[in-house]
Design a protein around this nucleic acid. Structure first.
Lengths: 189, 189
DNA sequence: TAAATTACCTAGGGGCATTAGGCAAATGTA
DNA sequence: TACATTTGCCTAATGCCCCTAGGTAATTTA
């Protein structure tokens, strides 16, 4: 029987592509096997189970996203960095909706830490270097930014903004202005 | 054969409870049938299919959430209203994680409009009455608030804030302060 | 080139979604 | 009260997906 040359890495990549095409929730062992023209059972030599496959796709997405953000952030500070970070994040979600959904998968803490989790945390803090925030304000600001960006992407994708004619691009840019202003004048406790 | 007294309403409510107990993604026709001690096929006289069931749970959740927010908002304005809205939202998500997840389900626009969608939109705008925002700033602010609240709840639930010792309650309250300040001094374009 | 490994297969069990068709319980009607 | 109608739940059956066990043939190693 001809061998297709499966391995964990190829399965993970193909799974990520499949996710972007049909949605992360529709990534199944069966669908992936179909894509390679092999039987379902053949995949189980390379991934432990369906959950394992999904976790690997999530880690791949987190890694890619971290790379993008790192590239976007390089050499920037202040509002420039804020905008670059936010856009890298949102663009990735729009170009790779399935991967982005995968990146939201709840991971075991150890798994997340072994992956790109730490880089993400560090980079979010890096944005704030241009603003003058001491702890615990910095942590609060990190959480605010994470919440707003993630929430915006989720709602925009979910169609929540379609009821209003206002261009979502314009809103996005105004929100970045607003967050920048807020970080510069962060209210004292 | 003894009749259990199924109907669409009871199935929807039980489905919502099940969602809160085991997660919205684990709400299946089978699991629900099991809970009532009947066969899977018996549910199909009351709901069209699995998707229909989930949509009904989502609409129930949106309705409940709108009721809560309306009650919280009554008689309040300005920061008071902002806080009440935000807390109603977050508390609901914490008390009813499965229902909250259901409420994020992507609905057909007509279905959403027929449900509590319009109320939600109106109430979010109502918060801003205490602040002095003209269009399109108001829409931008509505989107910012929605994004931030939803994002915060999602990340908090997803465990993203657990890597830092900072109390999430404190962060939440500081974010509300910050958003209030931001709305009062919304930057001009 | 024989042995060891490995890539993929067949076979089969179990779960969930769904449809078709049947019987019995509840309800309406004479 | 007796009969007819409706309807609530059932059995049976199909199809897709997850997963395990055990086999065979292709590839790699010695």
């Amino acid at each position: 029987m001809a061998r297709v040359g499966l391995n964990t890495e190829r399965l993970t990549r193909a799974g990520a592509e499949l996710a972007d095409e049909v949605g992360f929730d529709k990534v199944t062992v069966s669908a992936l096997a179909r894509r390679f023209g092999v039987k379902d059972a053949s995949l189980y030599s390379h991934v432990k189970n369906s959950q394992d496959l999904k976790t690997r796709i999530a880690l791949l997405a987190l890694e890619e996203l971290a790379d993008r953000v790192a590239a976007a952030l390089a050499g920037r500070a202040g509002k420039d960095a804020l905008t670059a970070f936010a856009n890298a994040y949102r663009d990735y979600a729009r170009e790779h909706p399935g991967r982005y959904a995968a990146a939201q998968l709840r991971l075991e803490p150890e798994v997340a830490r072994a992956g790109a989790g730490v880089r993400h945390a560090q980079m979010t803090r890096a944005i704030l270097r241009g603003y003058d925030l001491a702890e615990p304000d910095e942590t609060d600001a990190v959480r605010l930014l994470g919440s707003t960006f993630h929430g915006y992407v989720a709602l925009e994708r979910g169609g929540s903004f379609q009821h209003t004619p206002r261009d979502t691009e314009d809103t996005w840019s105004r929100i970045l202005d607003a967050l920048d202003a807020l970080l510069r004048t962060w209210p004292k406790a």
